[in-house]
Amino acid sequence: MTWTDGWWAYAFIAIAGWIATDLWRWLGVLAGKRLRDDSEALNWVRAVATALVAAVIAKLILYPTGVLAQSPLWLRAGAVVFGTIAFFLARQKPVVGIATSIAVLAIGLWWLGF
């Protein structure tokens, strides 16, 4: 039996996907209910949550999957650097930073023959 057969595929997704993620969300609710919104403990939780997300971001940029796995690192890093410069020049408007970064990447990929 391969994993795509009938109910087993859904059970697989439910156990390895749903339980594995919602477990942490539920624990987060129980922990969050005890935090006051001006406490030092919440400040620490905020820092940990942000650092976790930042680590995910860095991994997506440095070790991408799919098509980008074949793109050179200097191009992805360059796209981030140009996007960051544009973001601060435009008084921290997210859309400007994002558009610049994607444009740099698109031009680079095109130039490399993607």
């Binding site: 156990i15 993620t21 942490w24 987060g28 969050g32 935090l35 940990v48 949550a49």
Partner: peptide, 20 residues
């Protein structure tokens, strides 16, 4: 299950920061 669980621990502090 283990791989997804480990990658999803971050959801806990995220939810904990949002709930208050």
């Amino acid at each position: 299950f283990l791989a997804v669980t480990l990658s999803s621990v971050r959801l806990m502090p995220m939810v904990a920061a949002l709930v208050p």
